Computed example of a mutant assay.
Amino acid sequence: MAEELSANVDNVFVLTGKPNYPNGDIYLGYSAFGLQIERQKSFTIFRVPLIPRGKGGAIKMLLNYLSFIISALFLAPILLRKLNIDVIFVYGTSPLIQGISAIPLRYQFKAKLITWVQDLWPEDLASTGYITNKFLLKINEWPARLLYFFSDRILVQSNAFLGPVRRLTSNPEIYVLPNPAERHVFFQNRSIEIPKLMDQMLGKFNVVFAGNIGNNQSIQTIIEAAEIIKYHKEIQIIMVGSGSYSERLKQEISERNLNNLVAVGRYDSEYMPSIFECSDALLVTLGAKENLGWTVPCKVQTYMAAGRPIIGSISGEGKLVIEASGAGLTADAEDPVGLANCIIQLFGMDSQSRAVMGNAGRQFAEKNYHPQKISQILMDHFKSALGGKG
């Protein structure tokens, strides 16, 4: 997104922490402590200290979240003091409370604060299982209320987000803006080949899951579906990614002797066009909790851009988008039998019928999720918040 915005704006700056997601360790070449400035081709990244999230657990996750907020609150005003800033844009992935650190900057620079809500708070806490106590969840509403109160404009990633966000704010400036397809995939950039993985995919009907392997993704549904279809020797499910459920996934594969379910680990985004090109279908799953049905996972837009049919074990907004576009087949969230049936049904189709689905998804992505189009709409929101000034 910063890359897209920098095509329209002279100065784009990113404030973030030290990279440690998804494996939980600080990346090679970085330190958890100290400040760091990175110069990209068209924008600058300012990194503040944080405590890495480690291998999971509520306490480590909380320390990770709070350490960034505290570092940003105290260090960002000093780190950014020489800049001229008109708009502060909070890209509100989980945890949304990271945006609180933008509130003092709003006043320091007399800038407009715009928040794009990607994950609902505190609902995301409940769906991941980190907090289930209703009283604690109620307390966690207040950081979101605070951020919404100080935001000049709030953007949400799906229509279903409107109600939950309006419940926490009287701010009238709330608009729907869907996520763009991932640019490497949308523009079908040539990427590096992966001989070992490509060899593994040869001669098989490959259903590829790409992205975070975590609690919200209902990985157990995929495992149970793989168990159901394991006697279809031509079909295999390839899991590309990592996350809090990765070790459990590997354990289940081993214990159940699932030769048709392969966890290959995480690959950088530039590899994904090649992986998608070798796939026959792309898989998206979510849990059955109500708030997860309000979201459209970013991978849906990217899968559509890849031009491959989508199989979704998903409810709510994500399911509606897949069905409306004609891009694939869907089962309900957490329905392994339904998911297995979708995989078998798609496998039984001729290649032309599958290509029709893939092309329908690609056309839908071009119309609704083009990265440059979404970036331009975002720019229009910036200009409108500034009173029409470019």
Rank of each mutant, 00 (worst) to 15 (best):
Q157V: 14
F205S: 05
K233E: 13
S151A: 15
L249S: 09
E173D: 14
K233N: 10
S244K: 12
K250L: 11
A225R: 09
T128Q: 11
H232E: 15
Q188P: 04
K134V: 00
Q200R: 11
G241R: 07
I223M: 11
I223C: 10
R248T: 12
G211A: 02
L249I: 12
Y175T: 14
I174P: 10
N140K: 01
R153M: 08
I192G: 10
E141F: 01
M239T: 04
P178W: 03
G203L: 02
V240N: 06
T221H: 09
K204G: 03
E193S: 15
P164M: 02
F161M: 06
S158V: 06
G241Q: 09
A160S: 14
I192Q: 13
N189V: 11
R190H: 11
Y175R: 12
I223D: 08
E227S: 15
E193W: 03
S170K: 14
D152N: 12
I194P: 07
I237H: 10
Q200V: 03
L168G: 00
N215Q: 13
I238Y: 10
P195W: 05
N215F: 10
I139L: 14
I223E: 11
S218H: 05
E141R: 00
A225W: 12
Y175N: 12
A210R: 02
T221N: 11
E193F: 09
S242T: 14
W142R: 06
P180T: 05
Y231H: 13
E227R: 13
E227H: 10
Q251D: 14
I237E: 10
R190W: 00
V207I: 15
G163E: 13
N140D: 01
A210F: 02
L249V: 14
K250P: 01
I238C: 01
R145P: 03
K134Q: 04
Q236F: 01
K230I: 04
V185N: 06
G203Q: 01
L155H: 03
K134T: 02
N159H: 12
Q251M: 12
A160G: 03
K204Y: 06
F161Q: 05
P143G: 00
Y130H: 08
F186D: 09
H232V: 12
Q157E: 08
E224Q: 13
A160Y: 02
E224D: 15
N215D: 07
N159Y: 10
F135E: 02
T221R: 09
P178R: 11
L202T: 11
L162W: 00
M201T: 04
I235S: 08
G241Y: 08
P195F: 07
S218A: 15
R153H: 13
R167D: 02
S170Y: 05
F149H: 15
R183M: 00
F150M: 01
P195T: 05
L136T: 01
E173N: 15
N179I: 06
W142I: 09
K230N: 11
Y231Q: 13
Q188A: 13
I228H: 01
Y231A: 09
